[in-house]
Design a protein around this nucleic acid. Structure first.
Lengths: 360, 360
DNA sequence: TTGAAAGCGCTAACAG
DNA sequence: CTGTTAGCGCTTTCAA
């Protein structure tokens, strides 16, 4: 065997018969070399399996190629839609790697961040909260940030999100009949997507002559839920909208144990989707997010920022209505009103309906 | 304002009136300085808010302080117990940061790994699969690895896990009466914890004169599950054990829709726990993992390895039986094992590692 | 017990 | 168009 040492730029230069600079420029795409030289260098590099050292490059002030990903609700016990967040993280991680960068999983917790010794080139914060310390921490250091869901304290910072306001309108359009009563059950600290959903809901409802009432619970225990459900019953609500899959599943179980038929007596729909909604009886209608594309888009926007490429301040991804047993299509098309829903809305954001439940 | 430049080792040296070497040694704990000097240097460093550059240190061959975390089933659509995995990842991330290292979230996918440009100091692989490419990739590069759940191809590599074999025996001890029939429903590719659980189950069952039968399904659709449940019914099984929470929830829903009473006619228990098991009616009995401590332990073992500290080859964390409605306590203590891992232990109690010998 | 000097692998600045 | 040189901030000889 030859020397087991990893090849350095010097080895490449020697093998290609050029100088260090030439190799450096050739590989990093600086525009001062003739095609021939560049190609030659590339060949030699490939052949030697030369990989430029991120460390040495970093030392020269280029950054190491590290991206942070922080998900706001760090403690999974309190996480409602782990599934969506895990998906976002995994896809963002993949996309980051594809750019030759490495994704660092950051707790959403400022004190841990102080222990971070390596410099980051950018950070993605998923579902930032009010007065988000993590966001502040990085912005202070002038590290670029992108949020998934807007920053309540700074709506002009770059962010992306699902098009919740429009998605909820679509969801209601397919599952609610004008004039019906809607109960919206929310849980825990208010997230930006809930605010958006609520706005969309109210807008749609006022057009359709529907009544919307919000019920908020701090925890998901049987008693709290039952109490809400009794009120909902008394008010003769026709449709229960839940903030996420966990609430939906719980609500369904309690309804059934109270002897209330779903969807016969009341329909149930969830604002976020997850595999768990297919494991109930009946299955539960929901608005499907696309966490994969969301994670990828976050990375893309961040890299545009890092590279100084002009980008939209914020971008929206469309949601899909997934009709299942708990709230079938009411066969009604409530104003497919061409969107003025959001002035900033990405023009490509449209909501499609997908029917996945078998008629039983 | 002063110079906005970050302080370097030189600034510290100058301010403290010593040489670069002295500063370096003082801060990195090399043992050749008098306490006084060291203290002085530390003071100056703190006062200047000097943070040694991980990059420069890395260039000298010390590594950057990066740990990889790879979770075997990368695509969340197929992940059964996202909740547990997310917990492991988050806690491992936290523990890593506490060591002054940064955790990189790696997809479990060799081709993405090739794009990684920064060198890692160690890697944690959660739930490795057979012929695990990711594990092979890092071991080839002589990067230290620790797995959560053993590597099917190399049971002598360092790993940690829940004590599944023993946990399942405890679970059965509290929910099954000797002589009863057990049906074990498994899903998808076989994981090491399932193998362990099965072994524990068979061992316990043979002591208790129980019959164990395994049913494997590739997917969780209604038809596959119903078919299994019909067979289970014909065999007059008393208890259904499921591989994870997702299966448990699905099975419960199908049982109910087939008109089979739980727990009256058949009991249901799950080998992994998750919040979702509290959202069903009845709630579902399960074996509770401690993903947090598991993640932390993985990090600890990895750091012991990195620092060359002698460690046990493998370590197990105890599991807890959580009795819920779908399978109440049968009031029977079959297992000869002490009931020290009994259910309903204070949920906030920190779990400590219990060292046992490897299963032989 | 301490300090000076030599790089680690790379790129930016400045010649040739 | 290409090569030489000088560091980036740190650790590690090796000499004082």
């Amino acid at each position: 065997m030859k020397a087991p040492r990893k090849p350095t730029i010097r080895d490449v230069a020697a093998a290609a018969g050029v100088s260090l600079t030439t190799v450096s420029d050739a590989l990093s795409g600086k525009g001062r070399l003739p095609e021939a030289t560049r190609k030659k260098v590339h060949e030699v590099a490939t052949q030697l399996d030369y990989r430029p050292s991120a460390i040495a490059r970093g030392l020269r002030g280029q950054g190491l190629g590290l991206i942070g990903i922080s998900i706001a609700t760090a403690e999974p016990a309190h996480i409602s839609d782990v599934w969506n967040w895990a998906s976002i993280a995994i896809h963002a991680s993949d996309a980051t790697l594809s750019e030759g960068f490495a994704p660092i999983l950051l707790p959403h917790n400022v004190s841990s961040l102080h222990k971070l010794r390596v410099p980051l080139d950018g950070v993605i914060v998923v579902d930032p909260i009010e007065d988000d310390g993590v966001l502040a921490f990085f912005r202070n250091k002038e590290i670029l940030t992108v949020t998934v869901g807007y920053d309540p304290n700074n709506q002009h910072a770059p962010w992306i999100d699902d098009d919740n306001e429009r998605g909820i309108a679509d969801l209601l359009g397919q599952t609610v009949i004008p004039g019906e009563k809607i109960a919206f059950i929310t849980l825990g600290a208010r997230k930006s997507f809930v605010v958006d959903a609520l706005r969309g809901m109210q807008r749609w409802a006022s057009d359709a002559g529907c009544d919307v009432r919000e019920f908020h619970c701090a925890t998901l225990d049987d008693d709290s839920v039952d109490e809400i459900l009794r009120t909902v019953r008394e008010l003769h609500s026709d449709v229960i909208v839940t903030q996420n899959d966990r609430v939906a599943v719980k609500v369904l179980a309690r309804l059934q144990s109270l002897g209330i038929g779903v969807p016969a007596e009341v329909r149930v729909v969830s604002v976020t989707d997850a595999p768990a909604l297919q494991n109930t009886e009946p299955t539960i209608t929901a608005l499907r997010q696309h966490p994969g594309p969301l994670g990828q888009l976050a990375v893309k926007v961040l890299f545009d920022l890092i590279r100084g490429i002009e980008t939209k301040d914020c971008q929206f991804l469309p949601l899909e209505v997934v009709l299942r047993g708990s709230a079938p299509d009411v066969g009604h098309r409530a104003a497919a009103e061409p969107a003025r829903l959001r002035s900033m809305a990405s023009p490509s954001a449209t909501t499609k309906a997908v029917l996945t439940s078998k008629p039983s």
